[in-house]
Simulated assay, not measured.
Amino acid sequence: MSRSLLGRHLRGGLTGVAVAALVLTTAACGGTTRGEDEGSSSGGSAGASADPDAEIPADLAVAFLPKQLNNPYFDVAAAGSERAVGEIDGEFSQVGPSEASASSQVSYINTLTQQGADVILTSANDPNAICSALDQARSGGASVVTFDSDTAPECRDVFINQATADGIAQTQIDLMAEQIGGAGQVAILSATANATNQNAWIELMQEYAASEYPDMEIVTTVYGDDEDEKSFQETQGLLQTYPDLKGIISPTTVGISAAARYLSGSEYKGRVALTGLGTPNQMREFVQDGTVTAFALWNPEDLGYLAAYTGAALAAGQITGAEGETFEAGDLGEYEIGADGVVVLGEPTVFNAENIDDFDF
Rank of each mutant, 00 (worst) to 15 (best):
G12K: 12
T25E: 15
A28F: 08
E38K: 08
V19N: 05
A20T: 11
S42N: 03
A20E: 15
A48T: 01
L10G: 02
G47I: 10
A21P: 06
T32F: 01
T15Y: 04
R34Q: 15
G47L: 12
A18R: 10
A46M: 08
V23P: 03
T25A: 10
L14V: 12
A46G: 07
T25Q: 11
G43P: 00
T33C: 14
G31A: 09
S41D: 11
L14M: 05
A28N: 14
R11E: 13
T33L: 15
G39H: 07
C29E: 15
T25W: 15
A27R: 07
A27S: 09
G30F: 09
L22H: 12
S40P: 03
L22Q: 06
L10H: 09
A20P: 05
L10E: 02
S42H: 04
A18Q: 11
A18W: 01
G13L: 02
G7A: 13
C29H: 14
E36Q: 06
R34G: 11
D51H: 09
E36T: 07
G44L: 04
A20I: 09
G7I: 13
G13F: 04
A48N: 00
T26K: 14
S42A: 11
V19C: 04
G35D: 13
G13P: 05
T15N: 09
C29R: 15
S49K: 07
A21Y: 06
A46H: 07
